Simulated scan of single mutants.
Amino acid sequence: MNQFYYDAVTTMEQKGVDDEYIQGWQCGFLQNPKREEQRLTEAYEAGYADGEEKNTDNFANWVNT
Rank of each mutant, 00 (worst) to 15 (best):
T56E: 09
A49N: 12
T10W: 11
T56L: 12
K15W: 10
F4G: 04
N2R: 01
K54A: 15
A8P: 02
Q31S: 14
D7R: 10
D50W: 04
M1Y: 08
F4I: 07
F4L: 06
E52C: 13
E52L: 15
R39H: 15
I22K: 01
T65P: 15
V17L: 07
Y21N: 08
Q26L: 05
Q31Y: 11
G16P: 03
Q38T: 03
N64W: 12
E36H: 05
N32L: 13
N55H: 09
D18C: 06
T41R: 03
Y21E: 05
A8N: 06
K34G: 02
T11H: 06
W62C: 06
D7K: 14
Q23L: 12
L40P: 00
E42C: 08
N61I: 03
Y44V: 00
K34L: 06
E20A: 15
G51S: 06
D57C: 00
Q38V: 09
G16E: 06
E42V: 02
T11G: 09
Q14R: 15
F4N: 11
G16D: 03
E53I: 11
Y44L: 01
Q38S: 11
F29E: 04
T10D: 15
V17P: 01
E20K: 13
K15A: 09
N58E: 01
G47E: 02
Q38F: 13
D19T: 14
G24E: 02
V63A: 06
G24I: 01
N61C: 08
L30N: 11
F59Q: 08
